[in-house]
Design a binder for these strands. Structure first.
Lengths: 358, 358
DNA sequence: CTGAAAGCGCTTACAG
DNA sequence: CTGAAAGCGCTTACAG
């Protein structure tokens, strides 16, 4: 019963489109007394069709409200005009900034992009790739979930859907990858603090489970050791890469026996959260404690105090990844190499000379 | 020449998929000596197929790496499993929070969602709706661009693609809409400040071009007048709804002749930006100047000081909009009414008794 | 419970 | 420059 009723209603919804009885190519062809082939070619501006014919066809199509059926076309051509993009979480401004430039690039070439978060769940990412494959997506740009096996990426490639990686790379996946040079970048921040006179520098946030995380921690360790400073395990406070996590880490950070005078944060979000936490505790970030971020989000410049951070080339990463993917779609053969964007240090007000706490 | 070369390369890319010669339903059917009809039904768990047959078919399909072709299916059934979502800007956490709950709801019903920003450009929004129509999307959830004519929305409806509005409504568009009760909500914030003893209260950010903007300003005016307080045109500083804009508005705000003691901000982003700007000027937000936000973003609670703001039910809006759309897809007939979510005041540390500035 | 056949709406050789 | 026809890979009556 229930089912029957639902179906009845469903029909009536669909029937609420009576004006035009499903207008298709052949409707136009019949109306104008030409063949569907001519209409098809005319609508796509083929030079094979006479100008006057083309104009007549286009005008008529517009007039009767024709809607091009991409599914039908795509079934025939096996090109869908869809590009998939999957990242950890679009709510994270780091990814949002990358997406923005991907969007710009893809818009230009009239590709539709299909977005998904994976929240570092391999299963969710796999489902998305599967959906893309089913929809016949032309390609995919991904910032792979933690622990992604290379087969998951090659699965796309093997089914004719080229992939490009951003922000993170996956060992064993022979596809192009674009990311910042994390070890170098975090070195810039650490050296900056060292040169200001800091010696007890903590590292806040991040995980060893991503290529990015490992590189950043290694970069910090390398800079410390090069300066002859101690790297204490207690001075590393790993954690999520969010403002909330940075905010919460402040308590642990301020309670450290070593009384660090500075914090190298995993990213700007953690740094801003940490600064908020420090301010809550009655200290002044940038004066009592020096803090560096990473990414140089738009927000970094207007934080209080303005955040000293490492520009990570989000725009560049997005633009390059999109361009390379489009090139691949157009048949370019590329060696699947990883390209590192060189980060830059942006010094603002959140860092200064060390101040001893009583 | 160039063209020829490109085509050659293109082919070789596609040919890099030689393992399986395009596996389709009929490949499975032939391999198992059954008809394609049986395979089709089996893969979709139809009770018409014997259990043993189904299991054999599914196992075989998995084994040979069959990928379901949704375009072909959708062409036949005219159901695509795609739902479009278009908002001003997903980088804005307000929309991001709505999207999150839409995502949760849609995932549950195995719909794929196609996302787009319109940046308040009607043309971009129109292009997106057109793309959805071409892809045969089942429905669309939209937070309409400023100035969207009702026809743009009815265009979707008339072509069999149900629409649901979020956050903003459009006069003359007979579709369901979900938004917060803005006039009431901003009244909560304004009254809170008045009850603390403030009388010179400025309103920062926002525009009159959206239903939301008009409602919020009217709510502020109504609350002020009800309390017998003057509403001065100079005390309104309209502007974009971003942190950056709030940050920049601080200068104007602090320079106002009337020396306001409090600011009702258009949203949390503006409020946080304004607080940063106030702090840069050497004043302490929450003590020297009271500030209220709107939306209660996740970030509001960890701002410094923690932001007094109005909970705007993003999660609710997203969830309800998705549910209603799914109901419509399943054939439910609904009157296209607007539903207002009742906002709630969340008092934190950014508001207090008025302090006169010298 | 299963199969043969038509058709969804396009595009693309091919012929003229 | 234009047309007739096949086919992309599914699903759905219909028949058995």
């Amino acid at each position: 019963m229930r089912c029957h009723k639902a179906i009845k209603h469903f029909k009536s919804v669909r029937e609420a489109v009576p004006l035009a009885q499903k207008i298709k190519l052949s409707t136009i062809a019949e109306g104008l007394g030409v063949s569907t082939a001519t209409v098809s070619l005319a609508l796509r501006d083929s030079p094979l069709v006479a100008d006057s014919t083309r104009d007549r066809i286009k005008a008529h199509a517009r007039e009767i409200g024709y809607i091009y059926n991409r599914r039908a076309a795509s079934l025939r051509t096996s090109r869908s005009g869809i590009v998939g993009v999957v990242v950890h979480d679009i709510m994270n401004p780091f990814y949002a900034e990358i997406l923005r430039s991907i969007e710009t690039e893809l818009d230009r070439s009239r590709q539709t992009f299909l977005l998904s978060n994976h929240y570092d769940q391999i299963e969710k990412q796999r489902t998305f790739i599967d959906t893309l494959l089913q929809l016949g997506a032309d390609g995919v740009i991904m910032s792979p979930a933690i622990g992604t096996p290379p087969e998951d990426i090659m699965m796309a490639e093997d089914n004719g859907m080229p992939a490009v990686l951003i922000a993170r790379s996956v060992e064993g996946a022979a596809v192009p990858a674009f990311r910042g040079d994390d070890a170098y970048g975090i070195g810039l921040a650490t050296n900056h603090l060292i040169s200001l006179g800091h010696s007890r520098i903590a590292m806040i946030g991040g995980t060893d489970q991503t290529s990015t995380g490992r590189d950043r921690y290694q970069g910090y360790v390398a800079a410390m050791e090069k300066a002859g400073l101690d790297v204490l395990p207690s001075m590393r406070i790993p954690g999520p890469r969010t403002k909330q996590a940075g905010f919460e880490a402040a308590v642990t950070f301020l309670a450290l026996e070593e009384k660090p005078t500075a914090a190298v944060c995993w990213n700007d979000l953690v740094a801003i959260g940490l600064m908020n936490g420090i301010a809550r505790a009655g200290l002044v970030p940038g004066r009592d404690i020096s803090v560096t971020g990473y990414d140089d989000l738009e927000e970094a410049a207007i934080a209080t105090p303005a955040l000293t951070t490492v520009w990570n080339g989000q725009r560049e990463v997005g633009r390059l990844a999109a361009r390379i993917l489009l090139d691949r779609l157009n048949g370019a053969e590329l060696e699947p190499r990883q390209q590192l964007i060189k980060p830059e240090l942006h010094i603002r007000q959140s860092t200064g000379k060390p101040v001893e706490r009583s």
